[in-house]
Design a protein around this nucleic acid. Structure first.
Lengths: 216, 216
DNA sequence: CATATCTGATACACTTACGTATCTGATACG
DNA sequence: CGTATCAGATACGTAAGTGTATCAGATATG
C-alpha cells in the first residue's frame, strides 16, 4: 500500500529552455499555439486552482485538442511550472522597471511609489498563491520563489535606500534590504486578503497605511 | 460546450449541524469513524492540496474504506468544508483564550503576548491557505473566513486597547479594531512566508519585529 | 439473550481523465 | 511548385476515480 504523497517537481527545473525548444526550429504556428495554451492555462489555474485543472480544460479554453497540448508540454505540472516562470519573470521585470523608472523619490513619496509599482492583478495573485502552496510542498522549488522575491527586494531596497530614515526600526530592518523584505511581507499579507474582499482600491489604501507606519 | 468553472460551495453552509447528524442517535463507533476521517483528511489536504486529494487517499490514511467515507460525508468538498469549520472554530477558541488568559499586558509585553498566542502550525497554515484560495473562488464562503477573522480581531483589539498608544498611526489604525486588523494582515504575510522557508522561530522573530514597529 | 438498527466493507457499473499512435492538413524551404 | 517536415486532430486503450446497492458484522436496547 503506497500512500500518495506529494509528487516531485516537474523536470523542467533548468533555467535553460526545455529540450523540446532547443530543436532545429520553432514555427510561428507552434509558437502561437504555445502562447495560447499558456494564456488559457493562466486563466484556468487562476479560476479552478492547480489541482483541479484538467488537460481538457486548458484545451477547451485555448480552442485546441489534446494533441496540441501534448505536442507542447509533457504534463499539466510542467505547464504550470513553465507558466509561473514566464509570468513571474515578466511581472518582476515590470515591477522593477516601475521602481527604477524615475529618480529617487522624495521622502514623502516613497510609499506611493512602491504601492503604485506593485501588482494587484487578481488572477496573478491567485496564481502566485497557488504556486506558493505548490512550492511549499516541493522544497526543491523554494529557490524559484526566492529568486523572484529577491529581484523585487533588490529593486525595493534601491528605492528606499536613501529616502527612508531607518533608525527607528528594529535591527532586522535597519538595512535597506531588511526594510524591503518587510515591505514585501506586508504586501503579501495585503494581497492575500484582497483575494477575499476583492477590492483593489481598498488593498492599495491599506498597504499605503501599513507602509506609512513602517517608513515613518 | 460547457466550460468548467468553479463549482458552488458545498451545501453544508448552515451553522447548524448537518442533517445527517440530527438523526436519532450517533453511536460511539460512528463518532470515532468521523473523527478519524477528519483527522486523516486534515493531513491529506495539508500535504496534497484540496484539489488533488482523492477519497481513496483519505480512506487509506484513516484505515477505512469508501463505504465509511460516504456514510459520513457526501463529497470531498463537504469534508473539506466541515473540517475547516471545526478546526477553525477550535483554533480561534485557542487563540482568543490565549489572548484573554491573563491580565492586560504591560505595554512592553503586548507584542510578545500576541506572537505567543498566534498559531504557527505548518499543517494548519497550509489548510488555511487552501481554504482561503477555495473561498476566493466561491464568494458565498467569504463570510466563513470573515467570521473567524473577526473573532480573532476582537480578541486582539481587547489586548491592545489600553496597552498601546495609537496617536502615531494612520487614521485606519487609530481604533483598537483597526490596529488589530493591521496585526492580522501582517501575521498573514508572515505565516504565508513561513510555508516556504519552514522556520517557525524565524517567522515568530520576524513577526515580533514587524509588530514592534506597528506598536511603537 | 433476541431483535432491530446501524454502519462500514465490498463489488460493481459508470464516468472521467490521461497518454499514445496514427494520420492528415499546414508550413517551410530549395 | 514539389517535397519534406512539422504539428495538431482524432481515436483508442487503459487507468483512475466516483457513487451506489447490497450485505454482514457491530452495536444498542428492551
Amino acid at each position: 500500500m503506497a500512500r500518495r504523497t506529494t509528487p516531485p517537481p516537474p523536470s523542467s527545473l533548468s533555467p535553460a529552455p526545455p529540450s523540446r525548444e532547443s530543436g532545429p526550429r520553432v514555427t510561428r504556428r507552434r509558437a502561437e499555439t504555445r502562447r495560447r495554451l499558456l494564456a488559457a492555462a493562466f486563466d484556468a489555474f487562476a479560476e479552478l486552482g492547480v489541482g483541479r485543472v484538467r488537460v481538457e480544460d486548458v484545451c477547451e479554453r485555448a480552442r485546441y485538442t489534446r494533441g496540441a497540448f501534448y505536442s507542447n508540454f509533457d504534463s499539466l505540472d510542467e505547464l504550470f511550472f513553465v507558466l509561473y516562470q514566464e509570468r513571474a519573470a515578466a511581472m518582476t521585470a515590470e515591477v522593477t522597471a516601475a521602481l527604477a523608472s524615475e529618480e529617487r523619490p522624495a521622502r514623502g513619496d516613497v510609499v506611493a511609489r512602491v504601492v503604485a509599482a506593485l501588482s494587484f492583478d487578481r488572477s496573478w495573485s491567485l496564481v502566485v498563491a497557488e504556486f506558493t502552496l505548490y512550492a511549499a510542498r516541493r522544497p526543491a522549488l523554494s529557490a524559484q520563489l526566492a529568486e523572484r522575491r529577491d529581484a523585487v527586494q533588490v529593486a525595493l531596497a534601491r528605492v528606499v535606500d536613501r529616502a527612508v530614515e531607518r533608525g527607528h526600526l528594529p535591527a532586522s530592518m535597519r538595512s535597506a534590504d531588511g526594510l524591503a523584505a518587510a515591505i514585501l511581507t506586508i504586501y503579501h499579507g495585503v494581497s492575500g486578503e484582497m483575494l477575499i474582499h476583492r477590492d483593489e482600491a481598498r488593498a492599495r489604501a491599506w498597504l499605503t497605511d501599513l507602509l506609512s507606519v513602517l517608513v515613518g
